[in-house]
């Protein structure tokens, strides 16, 4: 990788977004034309509580530079409390990142409601900036 390429580091960022709030919030960001970096790839899940930690760890150990998991605000979960379970798993994931030799800043759990389009864009912008500052994932050859 040349010097120019290093300067132009464009991270791959995955966002796992729950169908009911966060994915809707991401759509609202679009409807409201809130701009954010094009590095983010959103994967729709029905609930943040359906995301197996392996999915996150796998992504981060196979080339993703950052992963953000988005769910409904506490109390808003379409499935009662899937988001709270996701939060507990996220805590475990954060702990395990150490074990995998990955900076914990590469993973983030965030609550985004269906009406928080601008907030979604802001979150993605800030997270992308953060990852850009961190540089490429240690798992990238």
């Amino acid at each position: 990788m040349g010097l120019a390429a290093e300067q132009e580091f464009e991270p791959i960022i995955l966002a796992l977004a729950c169908n009911w709030c966060s994915y809707t919030g991401a759509d609202l960001a679009g409807i409201s034309r809130c701009q954010y970096p094009a590095n983010v790839r959103i994967i729709r899940v029905m609930c943040s509580g359906m995301v197996h930690p392996n999915l996150v760890i796998d992504a981060l150990t196979k080339g993703a530079d950052g992963v953000v998991m988005c769910g409904c605000h506490p109390g808003d979960c379409h499935y009662q409390d899937g988001n709270l379970k996701a939060a507990r798993r996220a805590e475990a994931i954060t702990l395990m990142l150490q074990d995998f030799g990955i900076e914990e800043e590469r993973f983030k759990l965030a609550w985004v409601s269906a009406s928080e389009g601008p907030q979604f864009a802001k979150l993605m912008t800030e997270f992308t900036d953060q990852i850009k500052r961190l540089g490429p994932s240690p798992y990238k050859s």
Binding site: A26, D27, A29, G30, R33, Q35, Y36, A38, R44
Partner: peptide, 14 residues
Amino acid sequence: ANIRDQCSWVHMHE
């Protein structure tokens, strides 16, 4: 594949 709400609309200048 959501290439409007989550792509063209949020990266309008890129």
